[in-house]
C-alpha cells in the first residue's frame, strides 16, 4: 500500500470523492484484496475512535456491576478420605512423612525467597511517549538495570505531567515495590487492579507480589485467584499459587 492509497481511503470515508473517483475506488475494493483490507482497518479505526468515550464509561460501570453480581460462591470443602491402614503401615507412612517434611524444610531453606523467583519485570519502554523535559531513555535504562530509586524519581517527574499514563503508573509501582516502599506501591497496584483497563491483571499480579514480599500469603493467594484464565499472567499466577500451597 502506498501513501496515496491511504489518502484516497481517507477521502473516500470522509465522503470527499466525486462520483467517478468513488466508482474507481469501489471497483478496486472488489479486485484488490490488500486495498480492501486497508479500507476495512481504516473503518475499524474510525469506529474505535467514535466509540471510545462510551467504552470508557461502560468499563467503569461494568467494574462496579461486576463486583455486585459476580460474587464468589463459598468454597466447596474437600472430602478427606482416611484410608484403612494397619499399625505397621501407619508407622511406615509416618516415617516417610517425617522424611518428606525434613527434606522439604531443607529444600526451602536452600531456595531463594519466593518473591525473588517471581519478580522478573517486563522491560520498561517509554521513549515512544512525549517527554516534556524528562529524559525518558535515562529513566528506562535506570529501571531496566535495577536502579529503581533513579527510575522512581524520573517516573514521578513524568507522571506529574501525565497523571493518566497507566504504563508509567505500573512501573512506578514496580520501582516502589523493589525499594520496599509499600505505602507507595499498594495504592497504585490497587487502582490499576480496579481500572477495568488492559492493566488490571498486572495490577492484581503486582499487588499479590507486594503482599507476598510483605509475608501476607493469604492476601497474595486471594489476589492470584482473581486473575482470569484468559490473562497472559494466568500461568505465573497458577505456578505461584501452587508454591504457596
Amino acid at each position: 500500500m502506498q501513501e496515496e492509497d491511504y489518502q484516497l481511503i481517507d477521502r473516500y470515508l470522509a465522503g470527499q470523492l466525486n462520483e467517478k473517483e468513488k466508482k474507481t475506488v469501489e471497483a478496486r475494493l472488489e479486485s484488490d484484496p490488500s486495498f480492501a483490507e486497508a479500507m476495512q482497518l481504516e473503518r475499524e479505526m474510525a469506529l474505535f475512535l467514535r466509540q471510545q468515550p462510551q467504552r470508557e464509561r461502560l468499563k467503569e460501570q461494568f467494574a462496579t456491576l461486576g463486583e455486585k453480581y459476580f460474587t464468589e460462591p463459598p468454597p466447596a470443602r474437600k472430602e478427606v478420605r482416611i484410608l484403612g491402614l494397619s499399625r505397621f503401615q501407619w508407622l511406615v507412612a509416618a516415617g516417610f512423612a517425617l522424611a518428606v517434611v525434613a527434606g522439604a524444610l531443607l529444600f526451602t531453606q536452600l531456595q531463594q525467597p519466593l518473591y525473588e523467583q517471581y519478580n522478573q519485570h517486563p522491560p520498561l519502554a517509554l521513549t515512544e511517549k512525549a517527554s516534556d523535559g524528562v529524559n525518558l531513555s535515562q529513566v528506562e535504562q535506570a529501571f531496566n538495570t535495577g536502579r529503581y530509586q533513579e527510575a522512581l524519581e524520573g517516573l514521578d517527574q513524568y507522571l506529574a505531567a501525565h497523571p493518566d499514563d497507566l504504563t508509567a503508573q505500573l512501573y512506578k509501582g514496580i520501582a516502589a515495590l523493589e525499594l520496599k516502599k509499600y505505602e507507595v506501591a499498594i495504592p497504585i497496584f490497587d487502582a490499576l487492579r480496579q481500572s477495568g483497563s488492559d492493566f488490571q491483571d498486572y495490577g492484581a499480579w503486582y499487588l499479590a507480589l507486594t503482599y507476598l514480599r510483605q509475608g501476607d500469603r493469604a492476601r497474595c493467594r486471594a489476589l492470584l485467584q482473581q486473575i482470569p484464565k484468559s490473562s497472559e499472567l494466568k500461568g505465573r499466577a497458577e505456578a505461584l499459587l501452587e508454591e504457596l500451597g
Binding site: 466509540q51 461502560l58 461486576g66 482470569p228 484464565k229 484468559s230
Partner: peptide, 21 residues
C-alpha cells in the same frame, strides 16, 4: 465448564463490549 467466577465476570464484560462493537 472449567472456569471460576473471575473468568465469568471477564467473559461477561467482554461479551457486552463485543455487542457494543
Amino acid at each position: 465448564n472449567n472456569g471460576n467466577t473471575a473468568d465469568a465476570q471477564d467473559v461477561f464484560q467482554k461479551s457486552l463490549m463485543a455487542i457494543l462493537a
